[in-house]
Design a protein around this nucleic acid. Structure first.
Lengths: 351, 351
DNA sequence: AGATTAAATACAATCGATTGTATAATTTTT
DNA sequence: AAAAATTATACAATCGATTGTATTTAATCT
C-alpha cells in the first residue's frame, strides 16, 4: 500500500499507463471493464491501480460524460420532521441507484430558492427534487429548469401554475375529508380548522376537504372557525386561545398539522378543558409528537419516507428516459391514512 | 431571452467569445471580474452571457481548479432529530460560504460508511464531516482521508482511536454528571441509567458522568441498575419493564437519550406509577418529544444546530488553511445545558 | 515624436477521463 | 501460407473552464 505524503498529487490513469507502458485509453477501458480490453491487461491495470492508490476523478469523468450522477434537493427546512424523513427516503433510493444528493434549504424564501436552483444548474445536476417555499407563487425559475431539459419532480408542495410537470403529493383533500368526517362521526357539532398558508396548494386542499366533509354532513361552513397561520406550535396555542375567546362551544378541531394541534392542546389543558371529552382533536402528518402527547393525537399519516423514495425513483426514471420518446409527466397521489388515537375518541352521548 | 429547444446544448464561453470576436480566456476573466479585462469588455461579455442564457459549467471549473466547493456529510440517519438539526446548521454555514453539501447516511453500517467515503474521495469533496456509525471501531478509512490531505471533522460521534484529528463534541460527561446530580439533589436514592451502545465514546462518557455523580455523593454504583440498549423508544419501554421486575424501589432514571426515557415513562404510566413522585426522570438531547410528553421531561440540551454550524466552520477553516503552515487539529467541546422540567421535580420529603 | 510603461487582449497548455477511429497483433478460415 | 476476420491496443480529439506567457494596443513621460 502506497503511503501518500501530505498534499501529494493524486494518481491518474496516465501514471498507471506509464507504469505499465500502455496507453491511457486502455487503462480507462480496463477500469470500466470494457470488452475491448483483454482479461490479462485488465488484471494488470487493476493491480497497479490498487498499488498506486488510484481513485477515479469523477470531476473529470463527469465533465467528459456531461453527467454528474447527482440529484439536487430543495426543501424549506431540513430539520422539520416530515422533510428529514422524506430526504431519508430520497437518499435511500439515490444511493441504491448510484446517485449522490446535494441538499439545500430555501428557509421558505423565494430568492434563496432561486439561488439554489441556479447553483444546481451550474453544477449540472442530473435532476431536481423540490418542495417549494411559502413565497413561491411565481415558478419561472422552475419552468426554466424544464426548458433546460433538467428533469424535475415536485414532492408534497408543488406549483399550482405548472400543469406539465412531475409531482408526487399527498391526498390532502381526502385526508382532510376523512379527518373531519371522523370528528363528525364521533359527535362533534362545531369543528374548527387550523389552516396553513393558503399560498400552498396542499393547505388549500386540506381546507377544502374540511369544508366538503361539513357540507356532506349538512353542517354549515363558518369562516370564523378557520384560523390561518404558519402552523408552528405557538401559533396553535394562540389560535386556540383567540378562537375560544370568541366562540366557546367548539367541540372539535381539525388541524392541518400536528404541531399546531399540540400547541392548542397545551393551551386547553392549561385552561382546564378535557380532550377529547370537551374538544376532540385530529392533526395531520403523524409527527412523532402526536404519539407522545397526552392524550395521543389522532392524525393523518403521510408516509414521508415512501414519498421521498417514490419521488426519487420517478426522477431517475425521467433522467434515464432523456432523449428517448417524449416523457409523459406523471402525478402520483399517495393516499394518506387516518390514525385514530385517543384525542378523537369522544365518549358516545346517550340521547 | 433565448428560448432553448429541448436538449439544446448549453452555451459555453466559446460561444460568447465567438459572438464578440474575442478570446475565450478574456471571456473567462471577464466573467470572473478579473482586473486584467477592461470595464467595457466586461460589460459586453456580461450582456452577451445573459442574452445566450449562459451558466458556468462548474464541472469544468472544478476540474481545472481541482476544487469541488463541496463538503461531504455522513450521518447514521438523516431523519433522526438530532442529526437533521445538525445538518441544518451545517447547510446554513456551508451556504453562507458558498459550499454545497452532499449527504449520505451510513444507517449504522460500517461497510456503507466505507463506500460513502470512497465515493466522496472520487468526487473530490473539499472536506468531510462525519458522525460515525455504531459499527465503526476501526477507523482506517477515515485515517486514509487525512493521508489524502482531505480535511475531516468529527461531530458528536468520533473515533476514540484517532487523537490527531478535528472534532466537535458535546460535554457528555459533564451533562450526564449534572443530570444525575440533579436527580440526587431532588432526593433520589436509587437511580437507574439507560446507557447507549458502549462502542460509542459519547455513551461511555455519559455512563461515566452518571457513575461519578453517584460516587461524589457517596452512593454506590450498581451495575444492575444500568440497562444498555440502542435507546430506541421501545427499548426504553422494555428496559424499564425488566428493571422494575427485578428492582422495585427505583426512584429515578437518567436516560442517555430522550426517546428511551419517553418509552419508559409510557410503561410506568401504564402500570400506574407517578412521575416524578414515584420515579423522577432526566433525559438527554432535548428532543422535541421531551417538551410535549406529560409530564414534560427534564433533559440535557445539546445544541445540535450550533454544533453543525461550528463543525462546518471549523472544516472550512481547515480547508482554507491547506498548504499553509501545518494545521493544528482542534477539539471543541460544547457544554450542554440542563433543562429542568416537571419530570424531575420530586416533591421535597419532610423528614 | 520617440521611448518607456502600463493596460488589454490573444495564444496555448492544462485539469483527468472518455471515446471514435486507426493501427497492430492475433486468430480463424480457405 | 496467404487472406480475412477478430481482438487488442494506440492515437488523438474532446468535455469547458482556467491561467501563465506572449503579444498588441494605448497611455505616459521626457
Amino acid at each position: 500500500m502506497s503511503q501518500l505524503i501530505n498534499g501529494m498529487k493524486k494518481t491518474t490513469i496516465y501514471e498507471i499507463a506509464n507504469a505499465l507502458a500502455i496507453d491511457s485509453s486502455t487503462v480507462s477501458r480496463a477500469l470500466n471493464d470494457s470488452p475491448r480490453v483483454s482479461k490479462n491487461t485488465k488484471e494488470k491495470v487493476l493491480k497497479k491501480a490498487k498499488e498506486l492508490g488510484y481513485s477515479t476523478n469523477l470531476l473529470a469523468s463527469n465533465l467528459r460524460q456531461n453527467k454528474s450522477n447527482t440529484i439536487g434537493i430543495v426543501v424549506p427546512r431540513i430539520s422539520r420532521f416530515f422533510f428529514s424523513t422524506t430526504i431519508a427516503g430520497i437518499e435511500e433510493a439515490a444511493f441504491t441507484q448510484g446517485y449522490n444528493v446535494i441538499i439545500s434549504q430555501s428557509l421558505e424564501q423565494l430568492d434563496r430558492e432561486k439561488k439554489i436552483i441556479n447553483n444546481f444548474v451550474a453544477n449540472r445536476v442530473d435532476g431536481v427534487l423540490i418542495s417549494i417555499s411559502w413565497e413561491t407563487e411565481n415558478c419561472t425559475h422552475l419552468k426554466h429548469l424544464q426548458d433546460l431539459n433538467i428533469p424535475l419532480v415536485f414532492f408534497d408542495r408543488h406549483c399550482a401554475s405548472m400543469t406539465n410537470t412531475n409531482k408526487i403529493i399527498t391526498g390532502d383533500y381526502e385526508g382532510a375529508y376523512q379527518a373531519t368526517n371522523h370528528l363528525i362521526e364521533k359527535g362533534c357539532k362545531k369543528i374548527a380548522h387550523f389552516a396553513g398558508p393558503q399560498t400552498l396548494e396542499l393547505y388549500k386542499n386540506r381546507l377544502n376537504g374540511y369544508k366538503m366533509a361539513l357540507e356532506n354532513n349538512k353542517m354549515k361552513f363558518d369562516p370564523a372557525l378557520v384560523q390561518e397561520s404558519s402552523l408552528m406550535k405557538n401559533y396553535g396555542y394562540e389560535s386556540m386561545k383567540s378562537l375560544m375567546e370568541k366562540i366557546d362551544d367548539i367541540d372539535g378541531v381539525f388541524s392541518a398539522n400536528d404541531a399546531a394541534a399540540v400547541g392548542a392542546m397545551k393551551y386547553l389543558s392549561r385552561i382546564g378543558k378535557r380532550i377529547p371529552n370537551d374538544i376532540a382533536f385530529v392533526g395531520f402528518s403523524n409527527d412523532p409528537l402526536s404519539e407522545v402527547i397526552d392524550p395521543p393525537l389522532s392524525t393523518v399519516d403521510q408516509f414521508g419516507f415512501e414519498m421521498g423514495k417514490k419521488a426519487c425513483e420517478l426522477l431517475i426514471e425521467n433522467i434515464n428516459a432523456k432523449g428517448k420518446n417524449p416523457w409523459q409527466y406523471r402525478t402520483v397521489v399517495l393516499q394518506p391514512n387516518l390514525i385514530e388515537r385517543k384525542s378523537s375518541q369522544k365518549p358516545v352521548k346517550i340521547t
